[in-house]
């Protein structure tokens, strides 16, 4: 389960819609938002953790606000949407470049290869079986202990507890404490009687 969030940012609604449809077909892309100007982009960025922006040449060159984000937001990947085969202006670098005249297969494979290279770069466990240690941690989480308390009990650092919890959530696909508690009881990691009340 990946949560790669992309914003398509061009001055054309039709172009944005088209990219949205194409990107939504790519595995690993969890959400595609579209924006036609800086204000719309900002509204999206206020609410979401955007990982990539596909921007048109025109908006990048002509909108100072967008250019500023391009220069300052270091953790965002940038893709350029062009409608020309001309050389890029100097001073710009992009993780990805798409020409609107390219054919379907080329556009799809370019983007999906890129998304794959990003998402596999994030090391996450691929197995779904919990380790014994993770079961221990899960049990404590289900019983309502804090990260600090769990660390004390199991003689590990809080940091390690958090890492275990991340892996547990990733493996099981369950995010909330209540949900993890139900899982723990369903799988007999804890007894119903051990729970005073579910949080």
């Amino acid at each position: 389960m990946s949560n790669f969030q992309i914003v398509v940012l061009t001055e054309s609604f039709v172009l944005n819609k088209g990219f949205q449809v194409i990107l939504n077909r790519i595995r690993g892309v969890s959400r595609v938002d579209i924006a036609q100007n800086f204000a719309e982009l900002q509204a999206i960025m206020d609410q979401k953790n955007v990982q990539m922006i596909l921007v048109s040449e025109k908006l990048l060159a002509e909108d100072a606000h967008i250019y500023k984000i391009y220069k300052t937001a270091k953790d965002i990947r940038w893709g350029l949407i062009t409608a020309t085969t001309d050389e890029l202006q100097r001073g710009f670098t992009f993780d990805l470049q798409i020409d609107v005249y390219e054919d379907e297969q080329k556009v799809l494979s370019k983007i999906s290869q890129f998304v794959e290279s990003i998402t596999t770069a994030i090391p996450l466990p691929t197995e779904t079986e919990l380790s014994e240690r993770e079961k221990e941690v899960l049990k404590q989480v289900a019983l309502g202990f804090t990260n600090f308390e769990i660390g004390e009990k199991l003689f590990i650092s809080q940091h390690t507890v958090i890492a275990h919890r991340k892996n547990i959530t990733h493996k099981l696909g369950i995010k909330t404490i209540s949900g993890l508690t139900v899982y723990a009881v369903l799988n007999n990691l804890i007894e119903m009687g051990e729970l005073n009340s579910l949080k």
Binding site: L172, I174, K175, T176, G179, V182
Partner: peptide, 8 residues
């Protein structure tokens, strides 16, 4: 929470 209930 709702998502988790569904997943479970």
């Amino acid at each position: 929470k709702l998502y988790d209930i569904k997943s479970l």
